[in-house]
Design a protein around this nucleic acid. Structure first.
Lengths: 152, 152
DNA sequence: TATATTTATATCGTTCACGATGCAAATATA
DNA sequence: TATATTTGCATCGTGAACGATATAAATATA
């Protein structure tokens, strides 16, 4: 007899992992139309909020490592979405700036948040319950963010 | 001025994506000790529940495609955790069976669910609130599972 | 029964994630 | 100021994810 703790249906992580993949898949056709992947879209969200950031700031904002972000940015640079230029004050930094194409993508993607948002709404996930869900996910993220650093 | 809908802090998907990655990272040192990755651990959970399943059943259970699962299973086969043998009734199927090593891993990993579970518990995520979180994630998954099929 | 379709799995190419490592610029310390 | 340390970024290798495509076996249809 399988123990309760090993049952797939009792795993929080499997649910998060699956839900994350499913929403990313929901973004896929909408972003793919404009030659973007979901992680690239996240980079755009960061740069639309604040343009001209060093790689490290972008990575920190997305809670990713630079070894994930650097190749991502290079691909986006190759697509003409952004530029990467050596920092003037600090020559180690690479400052990432949106091109006109990168800025213009915001208008083109204006319907995306709504479209994905509407597919997620259901019985238990409503404008009333989403803040509670956000709180739980934020708490998990903050808890583990610190924990993974100290125990690895 | 950036619109609310494009703010990173308003994105459900980014939270799910990050929370998923963070929990996977929490599993990493515990599983790595036994030469396992998190997706491989998921395969073990499936096979511990029911051994000797065709590739397709495992993939369906994990909501993954066979082109993700096949290489994963091959790596696990190379590690001696499981065997893959042609089905007798249906020669198209590959039946996946645990080896003794694969079965024995359950005892070795006995403390893992507890260890990870305890790192996740926090103010808003408690034994009382987890069922509600499960319900929301399950609803999102089910909603998108169907939606991604019909609209892609 | 011959042919078409479906099903189960595998192969290939691209893009993440991420640990490990390397390197040059900046900063701290001797 | 010379040396050590830290910081910012990049490179490399491995293992997922996943779209597209291929192939063989099973099933349905003509």
């Amino acid at each position: 007899m399988i123990e309760e703790k090993f049952k797939l249906d009792n795993q929080l992580c499997f649910r998060l992992y699956t839900a994350s993949r499913m929403i990313t898949q929901a973004y896929h056709p909408l972003l793919g139309e404009h030659g973007l992947t979901y992680p690239q879209y996240l980079v755009l969200l960061v740069l639309w909020e604040k343009d001209a950031q060093p790689v490290n700031d972008i990575a920190k904002r997305l809670l990713l490592e630079t070894n994930t972000v650097t190749p991502l940015l290079k691909r986006m640079e190759a697509e003409g979405i952004l530029t990467r230029t050596k920092g003037e004050k600090d020559a180690r930094q690479m400052i990432v700036k949106l091109t006109k194409k990168g800025r213009d993508l915001q208008k083109k993607l204006t319907d995306v948040p709504e479209a994905v948002g509407s597919t997620v709404l259901c019985e238990s996930v409503t404008p009333e319950t989403v803040p509670g869900l956000f709180k739980m996910l934020d708490d998990i993220i903050n808890q583990l963010k610190d924990n993974n650093k100290t125990t690895d």
